[in-house]
Design a protein around this nucleic acid. Structure first.
Lengths: 104, 104
DNA sequence: GAATCACATAAGTATGTGCTTATGTGTTGG
DNA sequence: CCAACACATAAGCACATACTTATGTGATTC
């Protein structure tokens, strides 16, 4: 159940914020830490969890490690969500907008 | 951050299984418990968490309480997911299938 | 090659979470 | 009414998790 790891990873608000920040553009761990009240080890641990959940992937660049959003995690969530499409009401505007975007 | 409650609710495998079972059709707490190795209080607590996360909603029917999937929780996940559509690769088959379904 | 930097890992601790048993609440049927 | 039922809540406990400080690892710079 990889989805469980994904949900578990996103269950923590700090980790959710890290992911959200990373979604604005790939950056290294130090850059991610800027403006966030979080220690270096804590950030490293959070990134490790996000990476295990396939929400984030890393790429060594010299002594920096560049992190970026891993689409695979998002795809897995989308897959999970798709299983329950029978329950999506017509009024889900977010989804409708989403669909339009994909059609283009 | 209501999404955090949703992710936290789905982070537990037991709760995930309960939701999945409920997605096959609405039923009461006792029926949900059938075949699952889980005590009555544990089930009640899990349902309470799922309800707080808007993943499930209840309806009293005599001395039974009927539970069903609450589309609002799914919509919130879809909304969260939509924020990161920039990262969806074209190869996400699940999403593509999902889109086709919605178009019909 | 030694110091420094960017990051990872180890170990300990405080808090959170999911379970248990016990009990409470509301409903139904005899 | 009262016994049985369906479910909720309370309290306590075992374990998980998110943090801390301390230290390790690999790369760069002087």
């Amino acid at each position: 159940m990889i989805e469980n790891d994904i949900f578990k990873a996103l269950a923590d608000p700090t980790r959710c914020a890290i992911f959200e920040k990373l979604a604005t553009g790939s950056m290294n761990a130090s850059a991610l830490r800027d403006g966030m009240k979080i220690s270096q080890p804590a950030m490293s641990q959070h990134l490790s969890v996000l990476r295990s959940a396939r929400l984030v992937r890393e790429e060594r660049q010299g002594r920096f490690v560049n992190y970026e959003v891993d689409p695979e995690g998002l795809a897995l969530i989308a897959g999970w969500l798709a299983k329950y499409r029978a329950y999506w009401p017509a009024r889900i505007d977010a989804l409708k907008a989403l669909l339009k975007d994909m059609d283009q």
